[in-house]
């Protein structure tokens, strides 16, 4: 068994991680109830007349646009596994919601937004920081539309060689070269396999 660099990391409780699931359910009801009584009338009540309904029911709120926001980016990457532990980057607090920023297009003519993700290694000399960064980067490049530029870096002051690592992560050619490496790809695939 290989020695782990940090054998006993601090773990956050899943219920304390930021999540959209929690928010979306909090639709304030006018009457202050939780909707317990809504289920009393079954979904397929006789009261619905199939001949009276608009035949193609489009969702009433279909016009509203749900933008890609920080929480969505967080949800994309927080379930990536740590290469050392069978734990998610979210529960190890390697990725944190406040460290994700979406910068709007710099000029009105441009459509390119930038996603900046700052990762916090569990210990300051973690040599796997680059791999984690690469995993986050790969995941975002696969999952975000091309109008987003992805910028993954180590949070300042959380790693002994953060500058060097950032240089590696920012260098397109080095990233591309790294992804050619079979062993590294194997590690990345395993990390990303737990993504939700």
């Amino acid at each position: 068994m290989d020695d782990k660099q940090n054998a006993n990391p601090t773990i956050l409780s899943l219920s304390d991680l930021p999540s959209r699931r929690r928010e979306s359910n909090v639709r304030r009801r006018d009457d202050g109830g939780t909707g317990l009584f809504d289920g009393l009338i079954p979904q397929y009540s006789y009261l619905n007349d199939p001949f009276e309904q608009p035949l193609s029911s489009s969702d009433s709120d279909d016009d509203s646009v749900e933008d890609i926001d920080e929480q969505e980016v967080y949800d994309l990457i927080s379930s990536i596994s740590d290469p050392e532990h069978p734990l998610s980057l979210g529960s190890l607090a390697v990725v944190n919601l406040p460290d994700i920023h979406i910068q709007p297009p710099s000029s009105p003519h441009s459509s390119i937004s930038t996603v900046v993700v700052e990762i916090t290694p569990t210990i300051t000399h973690c040599s796997l920081a680059t791999v984690i960064g690469l995993g986050v980067r790969t995941r975002l490049e696969q999952a975000l539309p091309p109008r987003f530029r992805v910028d993954v870096r180590i949070k300042k002051g959380t790693h002994s060689t953060d500058e060097a690592v950032n240089k590696q992560l920012g260098d397109k050619e080095r990233v591309a070269a790294a992804l050619e490496n079979g062993t590294l790809m194997g590690v990345l695939r395993k990390m990303l396999s737990t993504c939700e």
Binding site: A7, N8, P9, T10, I11, L12, S13, H85, L87
Partner: peptide, 8 residues
């Protein structure tokens, strides 16, 4: 030293 992996 809760909450850590080992305390869990």
């Amino acid at each position: 030293d809760a909450p850590t992996k080992q305390s869990q």
